[in-house]
Design a protein around this nucleic acid. Structure first.
Length: 263
DNA sequence: CTCAGTGTTCAGTG
DNA sequence: TCACTGAACACTGA
């Protein structure tokens, strides 16, 4: 679930419910894996009574700006989300529960426990956030800057797109979608890309992410001609219509592409 | 019962 | 240093 568009949708949700509010009660599920560098108990103590000034995101990381540091940073790993509710109905797999003065509760879930919850004084200037490349939604590099970034890279283009030090927030499905729409094979080595292809790639990174964010990452609202539907759908005819879908492994990840379209 | 997976990190290798 | 591979992490759901 959680690539840039999904995390941005979560950010908006959290922003809507927590901005300007005070965390009157904080519950933290005991978990020594998801909580990183801080115990769940300590985490809850540090947050209780704090006022939320803002909710920010970079790449797949989400954090709260509070009236006092340190601030909490959330990463979902392979799954999870924030859930809003009023009564005592904690969702399955909850890791943190934040309650506001108006009784609204917000919980972060993380079923597979590959996510991380941290407490940092200045998120943007400390790892892991300080190691990230630019966020393609907020700060997509210009064409020349993008070309310069690529010129420092080798290897298959998909592996580079997945590298969070290159751009922050692109994950497996976004990478496949962007390459499909840019008509570039995921296996193409970066040095072999032409200027035209580099422009097309950058432009598709922007359009795919903007479009997914515009519909709050609700995949049923993605344009019908996106690879996404063919890839995850169970309609075999759609696969044929797409021109023949292939699966392979690039950058250690399952990759879907259409060989007849992607050169 | 088996296995892939919308992610990240680290050790080992070239 | 760069880059790639594979494994590990942990657990759900098909």
């Amino acid at each position: 679930m959680p690539e840039l568009p999904e995390v941005e949708a979560q950010r908006k949700l959290v922003e809507k419910h927590l901005t300007g509010r005070t965390l009157v009660r904080v519950a933290a599920m005991r978990d020594t894996i998801v909580y990183s560098g801080v115990s769940s108990r300590q985490f809850a103590e540090r947050l209780r009574g704090r006022k939320v000034h803002g909710v920010r995101r970079k790449g797949k990381h989400l954090w709260l700006e509070l009236d006092r540091r340190p601030w909490p940073i959330f990463h979902f790993g392979m799954g999870g989300h924030f859930e809003v509710y009023r009564d005592f109905e904690r969702p399955r797999f909850w890791k943190v529960e934040l309650e506001c003065e108006d009784g609204v509760c917000l919980a972060m879930t993380n079923p597979r426990r590959l996510g991380r919850i941290r407490l940092l004084h200045d998120p943007l200037s400390e790892p892991p956030l300080s190691l990230l490349g630019p966020d393609p939604l907020d700060a997509l590099p210009s064409v020349p800057a993008f070309a310069r970034m690529l010129s420092a890279r080798r290897g298959p283009i998909k592996a580079v797109l997945l590298d969070q030090k290159f751009l922050a927030g692109i994950g497996n499905w976004v990478a496949d979608e962007v390459l499909y729409q840019a008509r570039i094979s995921p296996f193409r080595l970066v040095p072999s890309l032409s200027d035209v292809e580099i422009r097309r790639l950058r432009s598709k990174i922007r359009s795919v992410i903007e479009r997914a964010v515009a519909v709050d990452a609700r995949s049923e609202l993605f344009p019908r001609n996106w690879l996404f539907h063919v890839r995850w759908g169970k309609d075999p005819e759609a696969r044929v219509r797409s021109g023949g879908l292939a699966f392979g492994v690039v950058g250690g990840r399952t990759t879907a592409w259409v060989p007849s379209v992607q050169i």
